[in-house]
Amino acid sequence: MGQTIVNSEAWTVLLGGGALRAEDLRAVRERTLHLVAADGGGDVALRHGVIPDAVIGDFDSLSDLARSEIPADRLHHIPEQDSTDFEKCLTRIDAPMILGLGFTGARIDHELAVYHVLTKYPSKRCVIVGEEDVCAHVAGDIEFDVELGSRVSLFPMGAVTGRSEGLRWPIDGIEFAPDLRVGTSNEATASRVRVSFDGPGMLLILPKDSLWSLVDGLLR
């Protein structure tokens, strides 16, 4: 990991340059203290009237205008090319919860790289907020509240097994792997669902209206 740039006891927004709904940014900012931008996410922040507390990245997509409008001491240039801007940020933010917006809906390779990084750093609590869904890496147990019938999807980034309570199709004993078995569109049969896994590697994907329940489950 790189040297910590943002150290906070408060939740932090991490903003990318992908698809973003203004109402989503407003909603998460009501519960967070800091906003960090990943490279070109600095331009996105300015378009939404926000000056980020820090911009971290290789700056290949940050505009000259953004560089002139954001204070120089908030610009953290990390030139190495062995990691993505998302990884550069995630490894330099120390916060109890990171809410990532603007990392879906644009380039597929960039979005896939985000999910790779989530599983690479299982100690980081981070939820990716998309246009329709929210996604987090789960390495262990999690309980979360959902509406009956809500979609609960599981996508493995590696070989992993688990157990479940409150799902229409229990996952107990199933061997998951990207090239073997995935858990798309399972369904909640209880208001509280519990899943647990024998190690890192599983992405949990829920409808966006379950965001705060997912956050609570990760922090519990």
Rank of each mutant, 00 (worst) to 15 (best):
G217E: 01
A95T: 14
S191K: 14
E9R: 13
I56N: 11
G18W: 05
D64P: 09
V129Y: 04
E9Y: 08
G41I: 10
V117M: 08
V55H: 07
R26G: 03
R29L: 15
P178M: 03
L203D: 13
V134T: 05
V146W: 06
A10Y: 14
H137E: 11
K124V: 13
Y121P: 00
F144C: 12
F197K: 11
C135F: 02
H77D: 04
D141W: 02
R31T: 02
E111M: 12
C135G: 03
L203Y: 11
K208F: 00
V28N: 06
I171G: 13
H34W: 15
P71R: 05
R194L: 08
S185Y: 02
G49L: 09
G217W: 01
L118V: 08
A27T: 01
R67S: 10
A177C: 01
G149E: 08
P79F: 02
R74E: 07
L33N: 11
I51C: 05
C135S: 14
R26S: 14
V215P: 14
D179L: 08
P96G: 11
V36K: 01
C135E: 05
A177G: 14
D141V: 06
A113F: 02
R26E: 11
E87G: 07
T32W: 04
L65V: 06
H48L: 03
R21Q: 12
P170W: 02
A177Y: 00
G17K: 09
V138T: 07
G17M: 06
G41L: 04
V114A: 07
L20V: 13
G41K: 03
T84L: 13
G40E: 07
D145Y: 00
K208A: 04
H110D: 12
V36N: 02
G17V: 00
Y115T: 01
R168Q: 15
W169T: 11
K208T: 01
L154T: 07
A10N: 14
M157F: 10
S191A: 15
T161R: 13
V134A: 06
M157W: 05
D216I: 00
S61Q: 00
S8H: 10
H34A: 09
I56C: 08
L99W: 05
R31S: 04
T189W: 00
L75C: 10
R31D: 03
G183S: 12
G57K: 05
R107V: 07
T104A: 11
L33A: 13
N7F: 04
G42I: 02
Q3D: 07
R151C: 03
T161G: 10
L65A: 10
F86M: 13
L75K: 15
G149F: 04
L46P: 09
H76S: 08
S164N: 07
D216T: 04
L101C: 05
D82E: 15
K124D: 10
A27M: 12
M157I: 03
H34Q: 10
V36C: 07
S210V: 10
D179W: 11
G42K: 05
L20G: 04
A106C: 03
W212A: 01
L206V: 04
F86Y: 08
V138S: 08
E30A: 14
L112T: 02
L219S: 05
S191N: 12
G140K: 07
H34C: 12
M1N: 14
A139F: 05
G57S: 09
L101W: 09
S68M: 11
I70M: 03
T91W: 07
R168L: 15
